[in-house]
Design a protein around this nucleic acid. Structure first.
Lengths: 341, 341
DNA sequence: CGATTTCATGTAATCGATTACACAAATCTA
DNA sequence: TAGATTTGTGTAATCGATTACATGAAATCG
């Protein structure tokens, strides 16, 4: 009545059993054409819709996957999720989203929630905090649920990941800045307990060394990804005896803050100072002084992660497989770092 | 073994029945303290986790809600979703996200998918296309599943909605532009078959009439929400015999495109020309010439929608209730429209 | 024509948790 | 101490769909 037609209702209406109805609906070859047709018509007439929960309980497959991210309202994460969704929707999967707000306990909670919900796979970009206790992640692996890290991964066995080559991105960016004539390159780092930030730092360091430029610890500033921290960092840098003439910021937002503050100091970009961001946030392109940045192809990253998941699901024989996909970063060289064309 | 402990496993281990285990875990008062303690300890030791699917099947409540949006990788929708998630997570709900890509058939498909998944509620912002056939929406109502529209709603009985007062926002914006000395105000409209765009248009129209300014049809341009269309529209406007001296764009992206093109024509903003956007996309604030815009409080909108949903769920007695919440828009008057301070 | 396949369908268990009802043991009442 | 309550558990049905196994009927075969 209230819109809940089950196979039993159809069975009753046709004076057959639910088993027959189920078989007819599932194109089981053992069902006669006439019965099949009758069932299909009746199902349609009664507006039958399969109850996925019952199916999920029986089959042990929920056709849901979970995505855990620090937050969804940034271009990067929203785009990755969109990519995952686009890759998985055609296969009948729904995406459940969880946000950690960079909070470890929330992350643990989210993993547990998803496991209880019997998701068929978990995609995650770990939160900022360093953690010693991997127990909650181990549990996912033990349950044989595909776990795919993207972007912010953690090196583990039996876990797949999709990332970009952060080391390379950082190396190339630093190299580019050097080629633009900047030898005094400041570096805005994220939390280096995360692999991506450690890799980026190493790329920066290596490029300087390869060019015989010594590392100046005063130029290395740890920031959070927002405009204010970028502004504050510039203030510190300009107060140095020997201030830098370029900034490589691992956050577009901090790069923006830096640019704002530099301009307020009357410093001309890119003539006197180059700035390079990271992440290709939409605004970087829109600025009057467009900001050079690294594109992480988040959409592609999401699609690739979906792909990796599907392969894992379909090759359940070699369960212990892990697949580490590394995408190539794309340097978007724009006005904020272009002295020499 | 592979990580699937059920209440039957616990029961067997303690030589009692699953019913007792279930009751103990659910704090049923009829269970003795000693048994309860024993069960809880054993459950913990065996790493028991409740299977939500089984619970959902039995109770008819999945503890999942669905959100249907045109796309998630824009600030507005991502923020609304975040708001919904924040409002519902403490109550134990998970959010399932579906994107329509502005495609009606995809929207219908999404509704059906969510219904099959037995979600407890559906939040949606309808896609751009006009539609005559509400059948798929009616089905949600028939099933007594709370349906909450946000932003892009459709006027229907028994359906709640959370929107901003688009008419007022538009009226106030137009009034503001007039007060800044602009009498020739062009208007970039979205698809007026959607209520929000119709309301915005009416607000614009009314403000002009109230100020005895005649409507100039040449100034009304229908656009899609992107930078290019904003640029093209400016081109058309400047080719007019009597070009405008202000633009009210119902899209921030189009406003940005307009500003870019106006500058290329050597037109000074705001001295010669005012521009006002809509949506408070992050970049509007970051531009060197910050863009005036209307804030739709998406986070608050999402939280409010979650609230409305929870109220509907908890007052299931008066099922036919509908709750139309209208939030106040906030005009963010920035540089692009500030001639007179 | 009797025996054997084949075909279509029915029977009943299953997935995991909850819960109305039943019932035995323990406790209380008069 | 018989009878009434209370207390703690067990029994079994239920949510909806699937499926191994059983079965009856029709078709095929020698």
């Amino acid at each position: 009545m209230s819109g809940k037609t089950t196979i039993y209702d159809i069975a009753k209406a046709l004076n057959i059993t639910a088993a027959t109805v189920s078989r007819a609906l599932n194109n089981n070859p053992k069902i006669s054409q006439s019965t099949r047709k009758l069932v299909l018509e009746t199902a349609n007439k009664m507006n039958y819709k399969q109850n996925k929960l019952a199916l999920a309980l029986r089959s042990g497959k929920s056709n849901n996957v979970g995505v855990i991210v620090p937050r969804i309202n940034t271009n990067f994460f929203a785009s990755v999720i969109r990519g995952i969704e686009e890759g998985l929707h055609p296969e009948g999967y729904q995406v459940i989203i969880c946000q950690t707000h960079e909070d470890e306990s929330r992350e643990i909670e989210n993993v547990n929630t998803l496991l209880n919900a019997q998701v068929d796979g978990i995609f995650m970009s770990i939160s900022n905090l360093p953690k010693e206790d991997n127990h909650y992640i181990e549990r996912v692996i033990q349950k044989n649920i595909p776990l795919i890290f993207f972007d912010r991964k953690k090196e583990m066995k039996n876990v797949s990941s999709v990332t970009i080559d952060d080391y390379l991105a950082s190396y190339q960016t630093t190299q580019h800045l050097i080629e633009q004539g900047c030898k005094k390159i400041a570096y805005f780092s994220g939390d280096r307990s995360l692999e991506i930030y450690e890799d980026r730092y190493r790329g920066y360091e290596k490029a300087l060394l390869d060019n015989n430029i010594p590392i100046n610890p005063d130029y290395i500033i740890s920031i959070k990804s927002n405009v204010t921290e970028g502004r504050d960092a510039v203030e510190k840098l300009l107060a140095l005896e020997n201030p830098p003439n370029a900034i490589f910021s691992t956050s577009d937002f901090a790069a923006l803050g830096a640019i704002q503050r530099l301009k307020e100091h009357g410093i001309k970009i890119p003539e006197d100072f180059c700035v390079f961001g990271f992440g290709n946030e939409p605004f970087t392109k829109f600025m009057e002084l467009s900001i050079s940045t690294v594109d992480q192809s988040p959409l592609e990253m999401g699609k690739m992660a979906a792909q990796v998941f599907l392969e894992k699901i379909n090759n359940s024989d070699n369960k212990k497989s892990e697949n580490k996909v590394v995408l190539m970063p794309k340097l978007l060289i724009r006005q904020s770092s272009t002295r020499i064309a």
